[in-house]
Amino acid sequence: MTGICTGQVAVVTGAGRGLGLAHARALAAEGARVVVNDLGTGLAGEGSSEGPAQEAVREIRERGGEAVAHAGDVTTGEGAASLVATALETFGRLDVLVNNAGFLRDRMLVNLDEDDWDAVVRVHLKGHFLPLRCAAAHWRAETRAGRAVRASIVNTTSGAGLLGSVGQANYAAAKAGIVALTLVAAAELARYGVRANAVAPAARTRMTEGTFGETLVSTPEDVSPLVVWLGSPASAGITGQVFEAEGGRITAMEGWHRGPTATKDGRWTPTEAGDAARRLLAGARPAGPVYGAAAP
């Protein structure tokens, strides 16, 4: 196959189903050789199976693409290292890392167990960090050896991480952390020829059906074109950016910027600080509404 990713090797985590599967298919359709990672867990992270990764590889090969399965746990150092090693040993290189693996354990904040907090933060945030670290170490070594690197990281955040989401404190916190991780990666890895961006997708998958029901009609395939472009050489120069993608809509998120500021010589009293804060907020751009919150 030929396309904008011809000659590239891409790793996609959580690629046995849903968004990850759509991304893996789309990357392969544009010429990339793909490592399909999936632990094969249930919706809440229970169990494991090599089936989803193997089935995804079968589909890609039937369509004329090249792919190999990896069923390791990317929330462990060993699993993340073996993921990168699989790409290098099978295809001889690594150009694109799409971090996508995750699951949900939704609860209202006061009912959220510590185990549910740890599990969701682990799979989303740590599951982004460890593959990213392993891939970055490889690309740094390549650069230091005098070999040119033009690599891309595409992380998966969420509207919940950008605006918050009622009943998803663990998920929202992890997805917000992914945005910060992306910005740091973009700043630190540019010297090694690596770009890092994030996409906040909205699509109907088995993870979102319980939250959004029939109201979410866009599909994972609607999101994948942006992910493929960000992974490809065509997006050279684009790094440290966050995009929302839903159906036919793509939004460039503007992130945190310093807004109105007040200063005084010396220390504020609590009352003065409060008065200043109210004046500043009156002139500041209001934050977007938290998903699921009651209208004011």
Rank of each mutant, 00 (worst) to 15 (best):
E89M: 11
A81V: 06
G65E: 09
V68W: 04
D115Y: 04
G102N: 05
L97R: 10
R105E: 10
G92I: 13
T75P: 06
L88I: 15
K126T: 10
C134F: 15
D73R: 04
D95I: 12
D73Y: 01
R133V: 14
V98C: 02
D118H: 04
G79Y: 08
E142I: 08
L97H: 06
A67H: 08
R122I: 00
E89K: 15
A69M: 03
V121F: 03
D118S: 00
P131N: 08
R63M: 14
V123M: 01
G64S: 07
G79T: 12
D118Q: 00
V120I: 03
V84Q: 05
N111A: 14
F103M: 07
V110S: 03
G102F: 03
V74N: 04
V68R: 01
N100P: 06
G51R: 13
A136F: 00
R63I: 13
G51E: 14
A67S: 10
L130P: 06
E59Q: 15
A135I: 10
I60F: 10
L125K: 02
R93K: 11
E50I: 11
G65F: 09
V123L: 07
N100H: 09
A81N: 09
E62C: 14
R107Q: 00
V98I: 10
E55T: 15
T76L: 04
A119P: 05
G51C: 06
A135K: 11
V120M: 02
E66M: 10
A141S: 12
A81E: 15
L88A: 09
E59D: 13
R140T: 11
A80Y: 07
L112E: 13
S82Y: 01
E50D: 15
L104F: 12
N100M: 08
V110M: 01
N100T: 10
W139T: 08
Q54P: 04
T90R: 12
H138L: 11
R144I: 03
G72F: 09
L88K: 08
L83H: 08
R140E: 10
I60A: 09
L83E: 09
R122Y: 00
F103G: 02
R58C: 08
D118C: 01
W139D: 02
A136C: 05
D116T: 10
R63N: 12
D95A: 02
F129Q: 06
T90M: 00
A137D: 12
R61Q: 15
V74Y: 04
V84H: 06
R61V: 15
T75Y: 01
R133F: 14
L94V: 12
R58D: 07
L83T: 10
N111W: 13
L132M: 13
L88T: 13
V84N: 04
V68S: 07
E78F: 00
A101S: 02
A53H: 07
R61I: 15
V120C: 07
R133Y: 12
W117C: 05
H138E: 15
W139H: 01
D118Y: 00
V110Y: 01
E114Y: 04
L125N: 03
V74I: 09
N111K: 13
D118R: 02
A53E: 14
L132S: 13
K126L: 05
D113H: 12
L109F: 15
L88G: 05
G127E: 15
